[in-house]
């Protein structure tokens, strides 16, 4: 699987990090994790799950039938967990770097400048 992960892929893996979930629950969790910005449709979700399963990042956990509807639960595989951890670390470093730069910029803007410069 190519890294950096695309945002939907990253959020699907994040959703599955807590516990195994079925498709509908993953859609809801991804929407919640992205503050409603990302709304996965089932066709897109199952395509992504197929790719993640092919890459060995996601595994089938169990099957259930609820109200006559088949539900398959998916879980994060060990290699899925390590890819998610590596990607999260990469993003964390980026966030830290950006936060430090923005703080420095804000501090610079607040420092009063001497009128007339060096003259």
């Amino acid at each position: 699987m190519d890294t950096p992960l695309r945002e939907p892929t990253y959020l699907i893996l994040t959703a599955l990090a807590r516990e195994p979930m079925h498709g509908y629950a993953i859609i809801g969790e991804v929407a919640a994790l992205s503050d409603g910005r990302l709304s996965l449709r089932p066709g897109t979700l199952y395509g992504a799950l197929d790719r993640l399963t092919d890459a060995g990042l996601v595994e089938l956990d169990r099957e259930e039938t609820v109200d006559g509807r088949l539900r398959r639960y998916y879980r994060l595989s060990p290699s899925g967990a390590s890819i998610l951890a590596a990607e999260t670390e990469r993003l964390r470093r980026n966030v830290e770097a950006a936060t430090a730069r923005l703080r420095a910029r804000k501090a610079q803007a607040l420092t009063p400048r001497t009128a007339g410069g060096l003259a």
Binding site: G23, Y24, L45, R69, L70
Partner: peptide
Amino acid sequence: EIIGTYLDVAGPDRRWPSLAEAAD
């Protein structure tokens, strides 16, 4: 499984798939 998820997402009052769902 896919149809079950679509029906979960759609809720009880829907009668037609949306254009976006058809495209998906």
